[in-house]
Design a binder for these strands. Structure first.
Lengths: 250, 250
DNA sequence: CGAGACTAACTATGCGCTTAGTCACTGAGA
DNA sequence: TCTCAGTGACTAAGCGCATAGTTAGTCTCG
């Protein structure tokens, strides 16, 4: 019974008994292997459709393996071996297709951001439609996209700290552009009198927030489809800009 | 010009020139030092008030340093050296107070979850209040708590993958209890006729989602106070349960 | 034959945790 | 009152392991 063991006992101020310490150095950081993730329905979605089409089949498969690993385990806990195991290669093969692990992450995050922005732009209501219809459309489209691509969405939101400062700045610019797109739509409705006088930034943040948070909790095998949620969140968005809170019946 | 350089060029299918590769092994994973974070207003909040009071001053200071590092850099990228630098100690000192780095994380996440649940319970409207008032109160309180403790909230939501399976299960039980608390309140309003017939789980998820996502984007020095957002989100929660979407004026 | 895709083995580095030691403080005993 | 042993908080150095990335080689295909 050495001095340190005695001291350990003495230093147990948090209720309950601490687990006995294990061997010197922790083992692998990631909890789930690529195999675990491939079989787990929680990580099934359409993220594999997002990758740049100029990439070959293998780099795209690596991105698909990576996005699952990053989403489930985090960027830093995911090893290059994990990513490559997901496509039955050894770790060195990653470097044939990508110059670094960080660039795998950057490719995923950049593609995710560019694709969702392109999606809402392409699927906007016509310019002749009412402001309410325009808002409804972008909110529901943005929501559907996040539901369908929730794995990539998760990485796009929560693994930004893994990027280099330069890459982060690039992605941040796309994020700002998406925010502006939403804000313009809300501001247009306020301007033409369709919407009440709201704090445009506050309501825009709330709308984005609902959809973005799908990356955290949404699963395709859950009870709501992306379309059902898109509709529900679009209704909420309209409520934000058309209802007077203090006049609400309570 | 060795073979690999040639191959690098040939393998550059993603628009733009890849950065030249650096030395053999990446350096430190965390971007921000404890000093960076201490000086950065984005990470200022009230999380330091959350720690178990039976802990001494130094373990509580370590938790405060850790919560910032975990929030900014992620659990896995944060080193024990980082955490201890935040309190001007060397890395070995962490083990005087905590048996492992994971247990630092667990303490933060468990405290966060327990404290927010206790907070909404303690600050409920009286049982005699209307269902709408009860719902308004828990949503606004839950929101305020997340705004005030956004740093710990961020760790509580996005660093769960760093926990051992056993610790994760413990935390998951608290999460479920919080969800049940919200669902009971909504279900009560539906049951007594104050709220329309809604999918209780869907609206509960949306309410929780708005507040939880504050951990991702909220900063105390931003334009909205926790109370302002609490009110705004409570209005939204009421809209979810009192408005008929198809009858909305558009 | 040459190039591209890949492997297996390796390298350099970082990091969680341990260990042996120091220092300061406290309380008990003479 | 003084001394000394014990304890807790901590340091500096080190250990064992894991991992991003490299290198030399193999194999296949056009």
């Amino acid at each position: 019974m050495d001095r340190r063991s005695i001291r350990l006992r003495h230093n147990c101020p948090i209720g309950g008994m601490w687990r006995r310490r294990e061997s010197r150095m922790a083992r692998r950081q990631a909890r789930f292997t690529a195999q675990d993730l491939a079989d787990d329905p929680r990580w099934r979605d359409h993220s594999a459709d997002l990758w740049n089409e100029s990439l070959g089949e293998m780099p795209r498969a690596l991105l698909t393996s990576a996005v699952r690993c990053f989403a489930a385990n985090g960027f830093h806990a995911t090893t290059t071996r994990d990513i490559c195991e997901g496509v039955n290669l050894t770790a060195g093969a990653l470097y044939v297709h990508f110059p670094s692990k960080e660039l795998v992450l950057f490719e995923i995050i950049r593609a995710g951001h560019q694709r969702v922005l392109a999606y809402i732009r392409e699927h906007s209501a016509p310019a002749t439609a009412s402001s309410a219809e325009q808002l409804r459309t972008i909110v529901s489209r943005y929501t559907e996209w996040h539901g369908r691509h929730h794995v990539a969405a998760r990485v796009c939101q929560y693994e930004l700290a893994g990027l280099t400062p330069e890459h982060y700045d690039e992605v941040l610019e796309i994020r700002h552009e998406t925010n502006r797109f939403f804000r313009r739509t809300v501001a247009r409705g306020v301007g033409d009198g369709s919407f009440k006088q709201v704090d445009v930034k506050r309501v825009t943040r709330a709308m984005l927030s609902l959809s973005i948070d799908l990356g955290r909790w949404y699963r395709l095998e859950g009870s709501d489809s992306p379309e059902r949620l898109g509709e529900f969140y679009a209704d909420l968005a309209l409520a934000m800009v058309t209802h007077d809170a203090s006049a609400d019946g309570v």
